[in-house]
Write a protein that binds this DNA or RNA. Structure first.
Lengths: 343, 343
DNA sequence: ATGAAAGCGCTAACAA
DNA sequence: TTGTTAGCGCTTTCAT
């Protein structure tokens, strides 16, 4: 492994000064040079297999062309498409992404955040979901560029990209009411997670818009946005509210837990219980039954967030935009009219 | 956004020289200093919120504490747990990972590879699957540390971590034979993907070990390791070989495609056709029916690969280990005895 | 145990 | 259009 060539080597080979070589190699400054010199340097660089040392460059320019992406857990099928969207938007601009999984654990989050900082990331894409977030305090304190993904802003001046959760809850409830349901429960996520909070309030508004009384639209909070939490929540729901004919889950994983709970009790979905999920994550159409759910374009969320971050890196003080991406209902086989209609 | 403090600032505050401060901040050189000075510097650093600039450090040390991870597609549920395993093994050693999706496209792969190179990654974790791989040529030429994941080595001197695909195919076929199947088809992946090739030959060996003639163990190659390719492959299989009573799919996504193809034709799985997948990816247990499949611990694959890479960074010329991680069969509801037993 | 000083490879302000 | 020069923040050898 012989030493990597430097600008100096390239310059020597091309018979010019280092700074001239540097200018030839930088697209932005290339136009300063005579066509011919630029050419000669390029050829020299290519023949040596020259590749700029990003440490040296970064040390000078204070830019790393690198962003840090913080997500709760890549295993949640929500996030892979978001990450791909991010990559897709970043790559043409020469940026590369670090990925960190935090499990929404403050300690893990802090460790990764500092790791990113010390690696001089130019900005952050933050998709973690805790509401009281020291990371965001730090971001604000240090004045680092950041864009939030799929969460609430918490009174901070940061750009935000999310799906339209309120609207999603509305169309979910609309659908259930349209096919005849009147007693609709919501399996909410934990109140620490901003997504869960927004969807909960969206559910309440939607129920109210159909004049469904609270007594007919009970809410059960699950301990997480997970399959296990969903199964536990559904168990409680089923034993305390046998009158309910439909469930709106805070996300597809909770919905999957509901399917398991129903199966364990020998209940049929959709005949005994209709079920609507949220996210239309991958494989939601492979469940038994295929899940009716609110579709969100996660890839788009990722790419729009990355785009906003790139904008921010250019204009750090532009007002922070909030983007709510549209959702749509995908009706599959987990919903149908209720067996007995109470209305 | 005030300027970040440097070692100089810390040194000034602590009343020592920059080099002394640097030594105090580096765990390896800290012992050179008097207890008291070290303490004082640490306190100064903390009070200033000092964080080392990794560019400057990297420029001196030629190490970035960074690795590049190349995978085909994060959307394949195989890879998130691998990435998490990698992160888990890397974090305690202070390393952070760049992630790149290549879609097994040579161009995307080359772009990301160069991006990683120019960011001075200390090593690569390569989980892409193309057999004729220019990236590996480059790795060899440049003498960079790298570990291969879930693929074959292609006569190169690189460490490799993979599941034991041969063994997996053996236990899959064993199971089907044990419940009575004699006409077992294999839905293979494309021959460009090394995983597909190994599993195919594993299937042949397993069939031979049970003395099943080739005429009863037909092989159909799918155009990819995807649901769509699996559905297409299954369609061909079903119309040309109605005698087959069981299918071993090259992976779970192909198996999912098979389930769709069966459903479209009104065939029941497992009663009309038994089906075994490979990987036990997330949600394989949520399919209809829950999939019998070969379980692979992807998280372990990731963490072991990262461990091997870290070893390699310390001892670049140690012989390249190959790790084949054990697999086990998870029997769910997609397999049962054949309707009519031909044996 | 601590200080002095050089230099990693690059860029950019200034000079010519 | 090209060359000169300084310096980004850190580590490390050498001197004290």
């Amino acid at each position: 492994m012989d030493k990597r060539p430097t600008v100096g080597d390239v310059a020597d080979l091309a018979g010019v000064h280092r700074s001239t070589a540097a200018r030839a190699l930088n697209p932005a400054t290339r136009s300063m040079l005579s066509q011919e010199t630029a050419e000669r340097v390029s050829r020299a660089a290519r023949s040596l297999g020259y590749r700029a040392n990003s440490f040296a460059r970064g040390l000078r320019t204070n830019r790393s062309l690198t962003v840090g992406v913080m997500i709760p857990d890549l295993n949640n099928p929500l996030f892979p498409p978001i990450v791909r969207g991010i990559e897709e938007a970043l790559l043409p601009h020469g940026y590369t992404a670090f990925i960190a999984n935090t499990d929404n654990d403050p300690v893990r989050e802090a460790v990764h955040f500092r790791a990113f900082l010390s690696r001089q990331v130019d900005g952050f894409l933050i998709a973690t979901a805790r509401d009281n977030d020291e990371t965001l305090d730090e971001v604000a304190r240090l004045g680092i560029a950041a864009v939030l993904i799929n969460r609430t802003n918490a009174q901070r001046e940061l750009p935000l990209v999310s799906s339209d959760n309120r609207q999603g809850m509305q169309i979910a409830v609309d659908h259930l009411v349209a096919v005849g349901h009147r007693r609709i429960a919501h399996l909410a996520g934990p109140t620490e997670l901003s997504t869960a909070v927004v969807r909960l309030s969206g559910f309440k508004e939607a129920a109210a818009s159909h004049l469904l009384p609270q007594s007919q639209t009970p809410i059960f909070a699950c301990s997480g946005l997970t399959e296990q939490a969903g199964e536990a929540g559904a168990a409680t729901l089923l034993s305390t509210r046998p009158d309910v004919t439909a469930i709106v889950a805070a996300n597809d994983l909770i919905a999957l837990g509901v399917l398991r709970a129903l199966a364990k009790r020998g209940l049929n979905c959709p005949n005994d219980m209709s079920l609507v999920g949220f996210n239309d994550m991958r494989f939601a159409d492979a469940f038994n039954p295929p899940l009716t759910t609110v579709h969100v374009s996660h890839r788009l969320i990722g790419s729009e967030a990355a785009r906003l971050l790139l904008e921010r890196l250019v204009e750090p003080h532009a007002p922070a935009k909030t983007m709510l991406l549209p959702v749509r209902l995908v009706v599959r086989a987990s919903t149908c009219p209720p067996r007995a209609c109470y209305s």
